[in-house]
Design a protein around this nucleic acid. Structure first.
Lengths: 150, 150
DNA sequence: CCTTATTAGCTGCATATGCAACTATAATAA
DNA sequence: TTATTATAGTTGCATATGCAGCTAATAAGG
């Protein structure tokens, strides 16, 4: 139990990060909605499935990748399944497990969402950096994320 | 409609930011919960009220500060009011308006939440930077946030 | 082998959030 | 002034999320 105070810079850095993220994800959700598309969380899992071999992943692995706890993975896959964007199948090697698999329709939806998402990234994030500055930013962010690796 | 591709670095920067934020806010919520304390959103508005002159703010101003839309401000203040952490009063200068005011109990709760929050910031964020690196990070973050000022 | 502990996933209930519609007041325009 | 439009805040209903408890299957320990 020490000082319990942050310097001005420390506060600026932390609050800046929080606010930047709120603004940026807000923009993403706003633009997706405006285009009649589902929320970012759907994109996130569709992308992970799309990238995965066979377009399929165990639910627990999926949860780790998109940082969702198990009951939220269950329910998100419920919704995707209901919309025909993914299917859920028994896992061949583990009797407890389930495997989510992206459908053709799911891959198409992801492709339709991408340009909208891309534009936000470009316009509200990348536009603020030149190549060197981007490198600097990556260094900083990697520093934070290194502690969470695995 | 242009290229629609991100370079490796661009992807690393963007995804890194998203993941960093998810990890960090996840930690904050986790630690608050573990200590039997309310979620971060409560802290956020209690802090804004605490900082404000008279400990009070119009609901719409509060909403802008904490980046919540109006119905969520209404309901968050509902909850704070129910717990005796804030009160809601008519606005003297605008018949439509309401003013939220933090109570003594509210100020005390914020003080109790702060060490928990502080520790996450210190341990999972500041610990990754020295002074120079922190300065660099602020530069980057300010670049992003400058577009959202006001 | 049998017992116990752990893990994967699902579900009921409570709470939180988003959306659209609504009331009341204020600001603007005619 | 009156009519129109915009803003502040609330609410009903639908959806999403968190929590705790549950089943079924695997893993670990005796």
């Amino acid at each position: 139990m020490a000082n319990l105070k942050l310097t001005t810079d420390e506060t600026k850095a932390w609050m800046g990060l929080i606010k930047a993220q709120q603004h940026l994800t807000g923009k993403v959700e706003e633009k997706l909605k405006k285009n009649g598309l589902p929320p970012y969380s759907w994109y996130d899992v569709l992308l992970e499935l799309d990238k995965a071999p066979e377009g399929s992943l165990r639910l627990n692995e999926l949860g780790k990748k998109v940082l969702l706890n198990k009951y939220n993975v269950t329910r998100l896959i419920d919704r995707l399944e209901k919309e025909g964007l993914a299917s859920r199948n028994a896992c061949p090697v583990d009797g407890r497990g389930k495997v989510a698999c992206i459908t053709g329709k799911g891959r198409m939806l992801r492709q339709k969402m991408w340009p909208v998402y891309y534009n936000v990234i470009k316009e509200h994030f990348l536009s603020q950096f030149n190549a060197g500055q981007l490198g600097q930013f990556i260094e900083c962010i990697d520093r934070i994320n290194s502690q969470f690796k695995n």
